[in-house]
Design a binder for these strands. Structure first.
Length: 846
RNA sequence: GGGGGUGUGGCGGAAUGGUAGACGCAUCGGACUUAAAAUCCGAAGUUGCGAGAGCGACGUGGGAGUUCGACUCUCCCCACCCCCACCA
């Protein structure tokens, strides 16, 4: 054994050996309980960043511990490999997307291997590989077959210069294209959708079956699904056969309607406007259309509206009320029209005040209805036959009447929209359908999958869907009638690819089926899923949706894909920001003791922010591994903060972990260099034995699924190391066994170092990663003395080392006899004595 | 505006209602060294009295409450962070 901790040699040696011996292969299914540990797979952007290191280390620790606790573990890795950056690289640098992506995957795979993550690389998947997207396409056909995939016209962001569709993120706040700078138009295109709204209610309800998901993720999903319970009501238009339909959650306020409002985009606007008002209303529509989303929804945006001159009849009162158009009504939500009840809705109140519309109180409770809206429930007034009812009862009664008389019904409304999956892009999974002039939309037969993405496409970033330019690919015979037909040229949203990848790992090499249901139903659902909170809504919601659809197709036997979810915090770096210009300054240009802008001399704001190139606050994992080794990097990200919190990068703390690993190394190395000192007091032996068993107990509990606190687990490792360091006789059996336990407990966190030390301590037993996880001896935790804490009126005044079997009366007598206690009860009356066995005694005096 | 979360030393953070600040970082003192680095040992919440050993007071964002006892439970308030948001 070398005297120095040579992490480079050790890590290289064991990584080689583990790979050669394939120690991380997934076992066959057997009687042992299964454990499926999964990190969200990365987009292969080029290099690993610290967030990845943190994410994958957390999952790796769990996988390593569960293996040794007798589980059969599935711990795979793959690549979310379709997406826009590859296409941009092609446009900017002329590298084909496939080549760019595969280079990045190779680089990142290498970096993952250097971290010593125990993946079963045999099951690696890449969503851009034909043997993967073949099954993405097969899934699409399943959705199509189930009636869950359909086409409809939808508004998209259209760049008139580049002649292409843009994602929302590619349109800046001024409504201009990120690439061409052109003003983006809304264009109506026929697009593919998945009918996720069919599952809205179940996606909402079954959140309750996920107790081990963070509350905030569940709250975000609930919010996104956005269920409201209310009523659908129809208001007949005066002098027309048209009716204006509204959705309201407050049917109990319907007697307070003083106008109805249409969204400017509502198709009835022009039909219903009176001739006198038409020019003004069209003007208004145009000025609203010119606004960007951001302008329209900006805070404190004054509500703008215009009367159409037409009127509707309130079917409950027979009253005539005006029809308005206003920009505060959203066409996309509900019916695109609302009933205006100024007395009991804040927006309507503001609007009514602005345009001097009547404010009529129909629910009691408001101190001054002209001053502000009363949005709480209350007793109905001015509401005809419904007067005197409490809001909830009134809702029911009013819905009943509307249903009976045929002008409305109870309705549940969701914010969730069907999922638009069409992308007019190249680097994605082709949608496997063919458009035939006589047969219509014809699915590509499953036997003809995959529809392979052609490689000879010229990418320019303009001119619409790149695939459409390749006639040799587009023109195909119709699979049904054989006549000339055309392929669909849209590709799928990449969120589709990642909505099912966790189902593929249990049977990743299957070339006959998407997976063998026997295998996937055995390994899945995922027992522990770990990833960034940025996926709290979309990826996790889509995956849940896919799981439920596949269950309904008979492929899966479970309802939810991820049993337990951990959203790890961001990794942040020290950031220097000029408070005036808001620019970040690289730390190399800043004196940390007096941080100033090197150009302006401005005192800089110092703080931690999410690592990014533009903030000059990033740290490359490769650099850290080069300087300190993978084990130190792993220890640092695990120790510095609990997993769900932000992690502030600090090189001094990295060095602290490096020191700690060095201490362990020396402890093992020096144990044979020291001479036995002879007699060790029995007391010391017991103390060490206790420390060893406490460490086993605490670390095991910290790595329990519910706890999973690696930071405190490592703190326990440090305590045990301290206890061993303090022990006087390294030749003693208890020390020797303590050393072995320490190394065993260290193994999930610092797998290379632990393996190296183990091979020195106990070469005959083989890899430490195959050793059973240590269990603690409850008997060793028992103490024969304890510290009795003595309080007077709840304040600690003294403590006392006492034998465990001291009778309670004796303890009280001893405690009362102490001078420090006497001082505080002197001259007072003892009212009560509280005794907590083996812990404390509290004397209550006054 | 709605929802979720967080507030503990100089810093990151520990604490089944029972000695608040484990463990680490930074700091200070000491040992080793010609010196430095590395390493080892030790100190340290704030504050008052004391030469010192020590003895007190205060202390987990603020205020009430429950309790013998509250970082922990309940209510009110404040600050900050995240998500959603003119969603009818």
């Amino acid at each position: 054994m070398e005297s120095k901790y040579n992490f480079r040699a050790i890590e290289a040696k064991w990584q080689q050996q583990w790979a050669d011996q394939q120690v991380d292969r997934t076992p066959e299914i057997d009687a042992r309980p299964k454990f499926y540990a999964l990190s969200m797979f990365p987009y292969p952007s080029g290099n690993l960043h610290m967030g990845h290191v943190r994410n994958y280390t957390l999952t790796d620790v769990l996988a390593r511990v569960r293996r040794r606790q007798g589980y059969r573990v599935l711990h795979p890795m793959g690549w979310d490999a379709f997406g826009l950056p590859a296409e941009n690289a092609a446009i900017d640098r002329g590298v084909p997307p496939a080549q760019w992506t595969h280079q990045n995957i190779a680089q990142m795979r290498l970096e993952l291997k250097v971290l010593g993550l125990s993946y079963d690389w045999e099951r690696e998947v890449a969503t851009c590989a034909p043997d993967y997207y073949r099954w993405t396409q097969w899934l699409f056909l399943q959705f199509l077959d189930a009636g869950l995939a359909y086409r409809k016209a939808s508004k998209v962001n259209w760049d008139p210069i580049d002649q292409t569709v843009l994602a929302n993120e590619q349109v800046d706040s001024e409504g201009r294209s990120w690439r061409s700078g052109a003003k983006v138009e809304k264009k109506l295109l026929t697009q593919w959708f998945l009918r996720i709204t069919d599952y809205a209610e179940e996606l909402l309800q079954s959140l309750d079956s996920l107790p081990n998901w963070p509350d905030r993720v569940k709250a975000m999903q609930r919010n996104w699904i956005g269920k409201s319970i209310g009523a659908y009501l129809e208001f007949p238009v005066v002098g027309s056969t048209e009716k204006i339909a509204v959705f309201t959650t407050r049917p109990d306020t319907v007697f307070g309607v003083s106008y109805v409002v249409l969204a400017p985009e509502h198709p009835l606007v022009k039909t219903l406007t009176t001739p006198e008002q038409l020019a003004a209303v069209e003007d208004f529509q145009q000025s609203v259309a010119a606004q960007t989303e951001e302008m329209r929804t900006a805070e404190d945006q004054p509500k703008r509206g215009l009367a159409t001159g037409a009127q509707v009849i309130n079917p409950f009162t027979g009253e005539l009320v005006p029809i308005w158009v206003a920009d505060y009504v959203l066409y996309e939500y509900g019916t695109g029209a609302v009933m205006g009840v100024p007395a009991h809705d804040e927006r309507d109140h503001k609007f009514a005040r602005q345009y001097e519309l009547p404010i009529r109180e129909v629910i009691t409770g408001s101190p001054d209805i002209q001053e502000s809206a009363w949005t709480n429930t209350g007793i109905l007034i001015n509401s005809g036959a419904f007067d005197g009812l409490f809001s909830p009862e009134a809702k029911t009664a009013i819905i009943a009447q509307a249903t009976e008389q045929g002008y409305g019904k109870g309705q549940i409304q969701y914010k969730l929209r069907d999922w638009l999956i069409s992308r007019q892009r190249y680097w994605g999974c082709p949608i496997p359908v063919i458009h035939c002039p006589s047969c219509g939309i014809v699915p590509v037969p499953a036997s003809a999958l995959p529809v392979v993405l052609p490689e000879d496409v010229k990418l320019t970033g303009r001119g619409g869907s790149p695939l459409a330019t390749l006639a040799s690919w587009v023109d195909v015979p119709c699979p049904r009638c054989g006549e000339a037909a055309k392929r669909e040229t849209d590709t799928m949203d990449t969120f589709i690819d990642s909505s099912w990848y966790y189902l593929r790992y249990p049977d990743a090499r299957n070339d006959q089926a998407i997976f063998d249901p026997a295998l996937t139903n055995d390994w899945a659902p995922v027992d522990q899923y770990i990833g960034g909170v940025e996926h709290a809504i979309l990826h996790l919601l889509y995956s849940r949706f896919f799981t439920k659809v596949l269950r309904d197709r008979g492929l899966l036997k479970f309802d939810e894909p991820f049993q337990r979810l951990l959203t790890q915090g961001m990794v942040q770096g020290l950031t220097y920001r000029n408070p005036i210009t808001n620019q970040c300054i690289p730390s190399t240009l800043v004196n940390p003791d007096d941080p100033r802008d090197p150009k302006t001399g401005e005192v800089l704001k110092v703080g931690y922010e999410t690592m990014s190139k533009s903030k000059y606050n990033g740290v490359a994992p490769a650099q850290v591994i080069e300087n300190y080794g993978a084990d130190t990097a792993r220890m640092f990200v695990l120790f510095k903060a609990p997993p769900e919190k932000e992690l502030e990068w600090a090189t001094t703390d990295v060095e602290g972990q490096f020191r700690f690993l060095n201490r362990i190394w020396r402890l093992v190395y020096e144990r044979s260099q020291l001479q036995a000192s002879g007699n060790v007091p029995e007391k010391d032996v017991k103390t060490l034995s206790r420390a060893i068993n406490i460490a086993i107990k605490e670390i095991t509990e910290d790595l329990d699924a519910a706890e999973f606190q690696c930071n405190t687990a490592i703190a326990e490792l440090m305590k045990l190391t301290n206890a061993l360091t303090d022990f006087s006789d390294p030749s003693h059996g208890v020390f020797q066994s303590g050393l072995r336990i320490l190394v065993q407990l260290l193994a999930p966190f610092a797998p290379h170092l632990a393996e190296e030390l183990w091979s020195n301590l106990q070469p005959e037993t083989g890899s430490i990663h195959t050793q059973q996880w240590p269990t603690f001896d409850a008997a060793a935790l028992v103490v024969d003395t304890f510290t009795l804490v003595i309080q007077v009126n709840g304040k600690v005044r003294a403590n006392l080392q006492t034998a465990l079997d001291t009778p309670q009366a004796e303890l009280e007598r001893l405690a009362l006899g102490l001078e420090a206690v006497q001082r505080h009860i002197e001259g007072k009356t003892l009212r009560k004595t509280i005794m907590v066995p083996q812990k404390l005694v509290n004397f209550v005096v006054n």
